[in-house]
Amino acid sequence: QAPETKIVDKSRVACDGGEGALGHPRVWLQIPEDTGWVECPYCDCKYVLKGSKADAL
């Protein structure tokens, strides 16, 4: 199944896999201003900063 994409309001987000005990260790991710998105290294969930150029795609 394809990784999930989430639109977020802040450039710093936490990801834990979203499945409680079945998820992964919580990691904090920083969305770079130049790209407007970041992917979780564990679950490949893509976080897109709302209003960024990546959000316009």
Rank of each mutant, 00 (worst) to 15 (best):
P32L: 08
S52P: 02
I7D: 07
A2C: 15
D55F: 00
W28F: 06
I7E: 08
Y42R: 12
A14N: 04
K50F: 04
W37S: 05
V8K: 03
L57M: 11
K46E: 07
P25R: 11
V48M: 04
K10I: 12
E4P: 14
P41M: 03
G23M: 11
S52V: 13
I7V: 11
G18I: 03
G17D: 05
Q1F: 13
K46V: 14
G51S: 04
A54Y: 09
T35E: 08
L22D: 11
C43I: 01
K10V: 13
R26C: 10
D16G: 04
E39C: 05
S52T: 05
S52N: 04
T35I: 13
V8R: 02
C40N: 06
D16K: 07
K53V: 12
S52K: 01
V8P: 09
C43N: 00
V27Y: 03
G17Q: 02
G20Q: 03
G36S: 04
D16S: 10
C40V: 06
A21G: 12
V13S: 00
G17C: 05
G36L: 02
H24C: 02
S52R: 00
K10W: 08
K10E: 12
I31W: 01
C15V: 00
R26H: 06
D55C: 06
E4R: 15
G36R: 02
I31Q: 02
I7M: 08
I31D: 02
Y47V: 04
P32F: 03
K53G: 10
I7K: 06
Q30M: 12
L49T: 09
Q1K: 13
G36A: 02
P3Y: 14
V13N: 03
G23S: 14
S11E: 09
K10Q: 12
Y47M: 04
E4F: 15
G36T: 03
P25T: 08
C15D: 00
W37D: 04
L49V: 05
V38Y: 02
L57H: 11
L29V: 05
V48I: 13
C40P: 06
E4A: 14
K6I: 14
A56E: 13
V13F: 11
S52D: 09
D16F: 10
G51R: 00
Q30E: 13
D34N: 09
A54S: 07
K10D: 13
G51N: 08
V27W: 02
H24R: 03
Q30Y: 13
K10S: 14
R26G: 03
H24W: 02
D34L: 10
A54M: 03
S11A: 13
Y42M: 14
L22V: 08
S52W: 05
Q30D: 14
W37V: 05
K50Q: 10
D55P: 03
V48D: 02
E4D: 13
D44I: 11
G51V: 04
P3Q: 14
A21C: 00
Q30I: 13
P25Y: 05
G36W: 03
A21K: 11
K53R: 09
C45A: 15
V8C: 09
D9M: 11
P41K: 02
G18A: 09
A56R: 12
C43F: 01
Q1S: 14
D44S: 15
L22G: 09
R26V: 12
D55H: 03
V27G: 02
P3H: 15
C40F: 09
D34H: 09
P3M: 14
D34W: 06
Y47W: 07
G36K: 01
K50V: 09
P41T: 04
